[in-house]
């Protein structure tokens, strides 16, 4: 039994009067890939932003290595957690290289120049994510998949052990979606990073992650091993719709589709 790395206990978050997260308790192990699923408005993105400390909760605590995240200086927290937002076209005229270099921010001191180590780390991250050919391109000229990859590269350059990903494959075509997922698995396995991925793609969650946590209306409904999530009794509860199941001919894992009644 590995020791829990991120420990969320009875954590609540309100936006104004509305309670977005209600007494969430969840522990995540080091090197684990956790997928967070749930219907729109369940509070998935909010949960990510709370884990990274951007939103401060009302009650409860979030700890990393037994230290509450509120106890870290911003830069120290950024050395532990990096965040990959949804690629939503808010990209400014920076080249990919410049953008990835900005991922080095927590390691920079305002008084010293960018070191060779920083440059190396940037090149390494760009190569690892396979976007060397895009290095000099402007972020604003990239496709959705390329943009998402650049964001992941920046998060790797940040050298944090935990990656929080907000729907990394939403809006991507099947090829790019599969590529990104493969890359994330590699980051998880080879670099030993802990991943928390918010996703609507239940099949890819089952296929790629270790465990699945389901969120609905700000509450955790279940946390199960990924392959155990393919059960109507569980999914129906979350999405208020029925699902059908089949075995994947190659992986052997169960995959699902919403049941459609004509």
């Amino acid at each position: 039994m590995t020791e829990s790395y991120i420990e969320i206990s009875e954590f609540s978050y309100n936006a104004g009067e509305t309670e977005i997260l209600k007494s969430i308790s969840l522990s995540i192990n080091k090197g684990e890939h956790l997928a967070v699923i749930g219907p729109n408005g369940a509070g998935k993105t909010t949960l990510l932003k709370c884990i990274m400390g951007f939103f401060k909760g009302e009650k409860g605590s979030i700890k990393i290595n037994n230290v509450p995240i509120t106890g870290f200086r911003n830069k120290d927290l950024a050395k532990l957690i990096s965040y990959v937002p949804q690629a939503d076209g808010r990209f400014l005229p920076f080249t990919v290289e410049e953008f990835v270099l900005m991922g080095r921010y927590p390691h920079l001191s305002p008084f010293t120049a960018i070191s060779a180590k920083d440059r190396d780390k940037v090149t390494e991250s760009i190569e690892l994510t396979g976007i060397s050919h895009l290095k000099k391109r402007l972020m604003s000229t990239l496709s959705g998949g390329e943009c998402q990859t650049a964001f992941i590269a920046a998060a790797i350059a940040q050298e944090a052990g935990i990656l929080l990903l907000d729907e990394p494959v939403a809006f991507l075509d099947p090829k790019h979606s599969v590529n990104i997922q493969k890359m994330l698995s590699r980051i998880n396995m080879q670099l030993g990073k802990t991943l928390i991925t918010v996703t609507h793609d239940i099949n890819s969650a089952i296929l790629n992650s270790d465990r699945i946590a389901a969120l609905k209306l700000g509450e955790i409904k279940f946390v199960v091993k990924a392959e155990k999530a393919a059960h109507n009794s569980l999914l129906e509860k979350i999405y208020d719709t029925s699902f059908i199941f089949a075995d994947h001919p190659i992986t052997g894992k169960t995959f699902i589709a919403p049941e459609v009644i004509k």
């Binding site: 932003k49 990274m52 400390g53 951007f54 911003n74 830069k75 120290d76 927290l77 950024a78 050395k79 957690i81 990096s82 965040y83 937002p85 808010r90 990209f91 400014l92 900005m102 991922g103 921010y105 927590p106 940040q158 929080l164």
Partner: peptide
């Protein structure tokens, strides 16, 4: 790039 990204980078 947005406050959330800036924050996540340690700003």
């Amino acid at each position: 790039f947005g406050e959330d990204i800036a924050f996540s980078r340690g700003v």
